[in-house]
């Protein structure tokens, strides 16, 4: 069997002296959508940050596209085609919509250009000259995803894309993620709203207290709401 696009093995990550991740292992295959579920503070965001090098792990290995990228600086990981849509969007608030997109142009080439992103997300086209700090939450989420697209990622790490958004806008966001999936982009999706994520994912992992406590096909987990409740706590199976 060929190696998965991304494989994380035995990751241990600390914030200062506080241990966050304990022996986290997961894989994402090429073109696969993998959901990473869990409660607040379970370690999902830290897992993503460890993968892209923003919070280097203390131990363990991260392999991507056949290379060991453990503790690589974030810019090098990004240049390999790993896009990041962080929690809370993280716009460059004083820069315009267009400038935010321009920052992601990296000369890797690929199907996604700024023109194509603006065509696919026409709302962003209308707002191209507006400072991104003045966009609504939904518009910022679109821009954050658009920004990642312009970099033509092979793997996209998406952190809590539905957080704080109105249901209609969440639908929009997930429509784009599904379109991306159709074009063969692999996605590691962190989401509090378990059912929403399981709907689009091929496989799912559940984290609790910094460990992976479950891994398996998404459909299987989606069909078993009691299982989700047990794994993630009572209020997790919403939506």
């Amino acid at each position: 069997m060929s190696e998965p696009l991304l494989s994380v093995e035995g990751l241990y990550t600390n914030y200062g002296k506080i241990q966050i991740l304990r022996d986290v292992s997961l894989t994402v295959g090429a073109g696969e959508v993998v959901a990473l579920l869990g409660l607040n503070g379970a370690g999902k965001t830290t897992t993503m940050r460890s993968i892209i090098g923003l919070t280097p792990p203390r131990a363990g290995r991260v392999r991507y596209g056949g290379r060991d990228i453990t503790r690589w600086p974030a810019y090098k990981v990004a240049r390999l085609g790993v896009g990041y849509v962080p929690e809370g969007r993280r716009m460059f608030r004083d820069l315009t919509t267009l400038e935010n997109l321009q920052l992601a142009e990296n000369g890797r080439g690929g199907a996604w250009t700024i023109a194509r992103v603006l065509e696919q997300l026409p709302k962003l086209g209308e707002l191209r000259g507006r400072k991104s700090g003045r966009l609504s939450g939904g518009e910022q989420e679109m821009l954050s995803i658009g920004r990642a697209l312009v970099s033509n990622p092979t793997l996209l790490l998406v952190d809590e894309p539905s957080q704080g958004l109105a249901p209609l806008i969440v639908e929009d966001v997930y429509r784009i993620l599904r379109e991306l999936k159709a074009t063969g982009v692999a996605i590691l999706l962190v989401e509090q709203n378990a059912l929403l994520a399981l709907h689009i994912a091929d496989r799912a992992y559940v984290m609790d207290s910094g460990r992976i406590v479950h891994g398996g096909p998404a459909a299987e987990l989606a069909a078993d709401r009691n299982r989700i409740r047990t794994l993630m706590g009572l209020d997790a199976a919403v939506g």
Binding site: Y75, A78, P86, D94, Q102, L103, N106
Partner: peptide, 20 residues
């Protein structure tokens, strides 16, 4: 443009492929 962006968020500019 990268400089102005980095002033606001050095982590994100790195995650977009810029060597800070």
């Amino acid at each position: 443009l990268r400089l102005r962006a980095a002033v606001q968020d050095t982590e994100m500019i790195a995650a977009l492929g810029t060597n800070t």
